[in-house]
Nucleic acid binder design. Structure first.
Length: 590
RNA sequence: GGUCCCGUGGUGAAGUCUGGAGUUCACGCCGGCCUGUCAAGCCGGAGGUCGCGGGUUCAAGUCCCGUCGGGACCGCCA
């Protein structure tokens, strides 16, 4: 993140953050914004001059009228500050610029909020409305530069690993599966539309058919789905695809680029990324994106209750629990009711809570239904101690895991940017997830071209939901950074998967022919991955919202307060595109 | 589509539960004083449709209904 090469221009000799004691005596010319002025009458004023590198104090002995955020050019001499006036809070605080001549390059209206850390508490809508002022702040400058450093490191990493950057189109055909797309009307072919790419998936796999061998792209992706702290309409992915590889090859390449990026930002290379199967992640953490920074692991209690008389437990295939250390006292009836409500929202029929008393006895509405052996076994398995709160869910395995995983995150999860970085590969995702309520057929877990695990191929017809896939996710501090898979490159296997999805050969040809026909000309075995750069950058920058690492993000409702987009289209523009806007269903009140 | 939180001079907050004059605090802004400050200090001043609309009331920032905007989350994101 060097700024040295950009320091000197025809208008300046140094950056505001650079003057040091070693520069004393030098004549310098600086350009920047007036961060603050401190006037002491007509013949002495201090002006703090700011650019993205920092702040330096300029001493003015004239009465030139400079105010907040004026853009000025200052020529003067670097000199030592008088005894007792050094400012240890500033890197430049040992020196000041004296004998200043000031040229006002542009006067400025007072900004709506202070251009410093106090703006962190300003309404985000106001920050976004004046984003260009927000961007002047140290925090935003730092985030933009971290972003640039990550992009550069990722590019270097991919290039050094023999990947070739290929740009894929932004105007693409609409595809039937996946996220809602943004549509772009065609002017020449009225009534026809392009879509903006939700990912370069189709094109990158065809690059493998095209013999590129190793492709990557820092790709913009667009999805018309609701926005969140970790989701924007448009976002950046490091997208890659490799030929003649297995899972380990892909994980190794992706892992290197992520660790290279992390090292470029933090100066420290994280340890090798650990691996966990999807089943283990669900079983121990109740999530396919487990946050490994904290405990509260799920414990199986099936053995304890194998012969229970308690109906709610006897009828369930899985009984699991978590232990919340020392939480018994702080959770009153109201909070426990809220936890129960949360569990039900997450899909549970109910939530059993037990408090561990001083003598190890269990206090709970259901205690009377449990035998002494069950109470003892439960306390033993959960390693319960006095004052703990125990939460139990009995249901089918997936529900019990997901519900407790939700509670685990609610109760223990730190903000995403806090604590150590815990990367983890989650591998062996199921090929199919759940069942489509309409067709009764399984739904693809990743996408329909994902390669089944070789050990499970024979289960595709007999027990599809048990089939694992060669699909994998990369998770950091409980955020899904990205996902990928080894693809199917043979037509026979592809049709078996389609059959399981209820897609016959004719429908497959109709829906996916444009994609699969090229494979007949010789598709190599291949696989790939894509991870969200905004998310990675946010976490590396210590931000919990990706808007903070995007120069011009959208609000949660998809608007931009600065440009006021989206805006109604000009009727002439619509006519040229052959479009007409229908009146809104609930009536136009304007 | 749903749940929850927020909206008060340019900015941040208090006031809303328990209705009584646009009240308060800090920052910023404008003017004056000030030759070593550094979120300078001191004195003075300006600045408001309490998001918007309706209702209840003698009286609404405060209570009720609706609506708009922002945020967190669920759904959604193959």
């Amino acid at each position: 993140m060097s700024t040295a090469s950009s320091a000197s221009t025809s208008m300046r000799t140094h950056m505001c953050g650079s003057p040091r004691e070693t520069d004393i005596g030098q004549r310098v010319t600086l350009c920047g914004w007036v961060a603050r002025r401190r006037e002491h009458g007509e013949h002495l004023a201090f002006v703090d001059l700011r650019d993205h590198t920092g702040i330096v104090q300029c001493v003015l002995n004239s009465d030139v009228d400079v105010r907040s955020e004026y853009v000025v050019r200052v020529s003067g001499v670097v000199r030592e500050r008088p005894d007792g006036t050094r400012n240890d809070a500033l890197p430049t605080g040992a020196v000041e610029i004296g004998e200043c001549e000031v040229e006002i390059l542009r006067s400025a209206t007072p900004p709506p909020f202070p251009i410093d850390e106090r703006a962190d508490s300003v309404d985000e809508n106001v920050r976004l409305q004046y984003r260009y002022l927000d961007l002047r702040r140290t925090r935003m400058q730092r985030n933009l530069r971290i972003r640039s450093a990550v992009n550069a490191a990722v590019r270097r990493s991919m290039e050094s690993q023999g990947f070739v950057e290929v740009e894929t189109p932004m105007l693409v055909p609409s595809t039937p599966e996946g996220a809602r797309e943004f549509l772009v009307p065609s002017r020449k072919e009225k009534g026809s539309f392009y879509a903006l790419p939700q990912s370069p998936q189709l094109f990158k796999q065809l690059l493998m058919v095209g013999g590129v061998d190793r492709y990557y792209q820092i790709a913009r992706c667009l999805r018309d789905e609701d926005l969140r702290a970790d989701r924007q309409y448009e976002f950046m992915q490091l997208d890659l695809e490799m030929s003649f590889v297995g899972q380990d090859d892909v994980l190794d390449a992706v892992g290197r680029s992520v660790l290279d990026a992390a090292e470029a930002v933090t100066g420290e290379r994280p340890p090798e990324i650990e691996r966990m199967t999807w089943h283990e992640a669900m079983d121990r953490y109740g999530s396919d994106k487990p946050d490994l920074r904290f405990g509260l692991e799920l414990v199986d209690l099936g053995d304890v209750f194998s012969a229970t008389e308690f109906k709610a437990f006897a009828s369930a295939s899985t009984i699991k629990g978590i232990r919340v250390p020392g939480a018994a006292a702080e959770y009153g009836r109201g909070q426990l009711d809220r936890l129960t409500e949360r569990a039900k929202q997450a899909g549970a029929k109910g939530l059993v809570w037990l408090k561990v008393g001083d003598g190890g006895e269990l206090e709970s509405p259901v205690a009377k239904f449990l035998s002494p052996e069950e109470c003892a076994g439960l306390a033993k398995e959960l390693e319960a101690e006095s004052g703990d709160l125990l939460l139990l869910v009995a249901d089918e395995w997936s529900v019990a895991c997901e519900v407790l995983g939700t509670l685990r995150n609610d109760l223990g999860r730190p903000p995403v940017h806090q604590g150590p970085y815990r990367y983890v590969w989650v591998v062996e995702f199921p090929l199919f997830v759940g069942v489509d309520p309409v067709s009764g057929r399984p739904r693809p877990g990743h996408h329909p071209f994902t390669r089944p695990h070789p050990d499970d191929v024979d289960l595709i017809e007999s027990d599809p939901l048990a089939v694992r896939s060669i699909a994998y996710d990369l998770v950091l501090n409980g955020w899904e950074l990205g996902s990928g898979s080894i693809r199917i490159h043979e037509p026979e296997l592809q049709q078996r998967v389609f059959n399981a999805l209820g897609i016959g050969p004719e429908e497959a040809a109709r829906k996916f022919g444009f994609f699969l026909r090229p494979f007949d000309y010789g598709a190599p075995p291949h696989g790939g991955f894509a991870y969200g750069l905004d998310r990675l950058i946010a976490i590396l920058a210590g931000e919990e919202n990706i808007r903070e690492v995007i120069a011009y993000p959208k609000t949660q409702s998809g608007t931009d307060p600065m440009t006021e987009s989206p805006l109604p289209a000009d009727p002439a523009q619509l006519a040229e595109l052959g479009l007409r806007v229908l009146p809104s269903v609930d009536g136009d009140r304007s």
